[in-house]
Simulated assay, not measured.
Amino acid sequence: MKEIDSIIFDLGGVLVDWKPEYVFLDVFEGNEEKTKWFLNNICTLDWNEQQDAGRTIDEANKTLIAQFPEFEHEIKQYYGRWLEMLGGAIEGTVKILDSLVKKDCYKLVALTNWSAETFPKALEMFEFLHWFEGIVVSGEEKTRKPFEKIYNITLERFNIKAEKAIFIDDNLRNIEAANKLGINSIHFESPEKLLQQLKIYNIHL
């Protein structure tokens, strides 16, 4: 194994706690069944990922409301109350990132599926997002994980060699795509487990 010199972090689910349920449990007055149904059938992850890939929020709302006019009010809550979907920082991972910054041995970048319209709000909220050398935001690039193009953008923009990089993501689909490009990957499950997995690459914090 070649020595690692670059670490690429996903953001949502790794460093930032993001769950639409935080909003829609309130919208549906604590009814978990209704919340689950709505997020599985109306404001789905597939729908959200189209905004991550560059579609505007205005277009997203118009398209979905045209399909489900009876849910217009609820659909508008998705981005109308978007900030409430952010549960805060995942502190254990932020501590790991802080330790990596202080070691000053690695190129630290982020690769995130995130709407270009909402990401600036996250930059205002989370100071640690400014610790990276740079962040590749899918909505700005008009493509997203797990498509090969966005990984190549990240590698080329920051002069990273796949075999000398680690990619950390909570979505196995994204991990598998990175592996196909020769990028070492860690499937994120918890900060505690991440610490142990980094040791496999001789990264001790």
Rank of each mutant, 00 (worst) to 15 (best):
M125D: 09
L45D: 14
I96E: 09
G80V: 03
N61Y: 15
W131M: 11
I186T: 04
K161H: 13
N31Q: 08
D58R: 15
E49Y: 13
R173E: 12
I186V: 12
L194V: 00
G30W: 03
H204Q: 12
N61G: 06
T143R: 06
E3Y: 07
E72C: 04
L111E: 09
F24M: 08
F119R: 07
P191W: 08
R81C: 04
L129M: 12
L155V: 10
E91D: 15
F38W: 03
I160M: 10
W18G: 03
E3N: 14
E124S: 15
L45C: 12
K34Q: 08
K103S: 11
A116N: 13
E72I: 01
P146R: 02
K142M: 12
G80Q: 02
L97C: 06
N113T: 08
Y78H: 11
F9K: 01
E84H: 12
L15Y: 07
G87P: 02
W47G: 02
L100I: 06
Y151P: 03
L194N: 03
E156P: 04
A66P: 00
P20M: 06
K2D: 01
A122H: 10
D26V: 13
A162H: 04
K76A: 01
E49A: 10
N184S: 03
N174C: 08
G92P: 01
S185F: 05
F188K: 01
D169S: 01
G13F: 02
E156N: 15
I186W: 09
N159G: 14
K149G: 08
G12C: 12
E74Q: 14
G139H: 04
L181V: 11
E91H: 14
G88Y: 07
H73P: 00
G134M: 06
A178I: 03
G12Y: 13
K34S: 08
F132W: 11
A53W: 10
I135H: 11
I160G: 01
D10V: 00
E117S: 10
D104Q: 12
E141N: 09
F147E: 02
T143F: 05
F119D: 06
D170P: 05
L39P: 01
L155H: 08
L205S: 06
S6C: 09
C43H: 01
P146S: 05
L111H: 09
T143V: 04
E127W: 11
F128A: 03
A165L: 02
R81N: 09
L123E: 15
V109H: 07
Y22Q: 07
Q67W: 08
L123A: 14
W131R: 11
A53Q: 14
E117W: 04
A110Y: 06
L64A: 07
K2N: 11
D17G: 06
D10G: 02
